[in-house]
Design a protein around this nucleic acid. Structure first.
Lengths: 115, 115
DNA sequence: GCGGTCGTTTAGTATATAGTTCACGTTCAA
DNA sequence: TTGAACGTGAACTATATACTAAACGACCGC
């Protein structure tokens, strides 16, 4: 499990926004009981669509929250599967990179794509 | 399902190498019955470790075969989760790219990483 | 015409994933 | 002092995933 868990992050942000557990559960589309256990990491994080909904409601980055949930967005997985060999190779080569270095590459990629 | 399926690919390569179903199943660590159904796409592709084992035995690229199985290697998923925002952003920006363009980027990444 | 191999059919099973329902104790406002 | 909202505990449940075992008919060598 990551240093900071999915559950505790959700709880912190939800409480910060003063949304009740029942109210929030309703907005996500799950039972309050379930949400309670998820927030205390007694249950594993919910399915992708629920995680995405939570990210929207709490204004968190969906990819970041999915990562906390131990998942990778399904659209991203689809992209990887289009060119799995090249993509996997690239990703493995970035294994030791910092977020900053990666961010620079993203910029570069976007620029080159336009050209 | 992809244009060419996981099952048919495995069967073709296995037959090509003249390995019997029972023999191959044994090497993978599954029952012949199961392998038979997987190869005719009656059952979904097996778990990641089995797919990787198949790739080894048939000398196929593991990431390519995993993609055919509708999966992404777990080590690659782990890498994505280290910097999910940047990585997802990058991958989405490569959505329309050809394999060649991606390959060039991989090379570039490797070169820059050394420096 | 029997023993061994081939792939296949039918009918299951174990475990994980993703949740639910109902009932409970606490706190606070009217 | 009741009732409305809060979060929680215990006990299930449904569906999907990832398989297995037993038996079957076709073929092949001897």
């Amino acid at each position: 499990m990551p240093r900071i868990s999915f559950g505790s992050t959700v709880r912190q942000k939800r409480v910060e926004r003063q949304i009740g557990l029942r109210e929030f559960a309703k907005q996500i589309g799950v039972s309050p009981t379930y949400l309670s256990k998820v927030e205390r990491d007694e249950f594993a994080p919910p399915a992708e669509d629920k995680v995405v909904r939570i990210a929207q409601l709490l204004e968190l980055d969906r990819d970041a929250l999915l990562a906390l949930a131990g998942k990778v967005a399904s659209d991203v997985q689809d992209i990887i599967r289009r060119h799995p060999v090249e993509t996997a190779s690239f990703l493995r080569s970035t294994k030791g990179w910092t977020a900053e270095r990666l961010a620079a590459f993203v910029k570069d990629a976007a620029r080159k794509h336009k050209a």
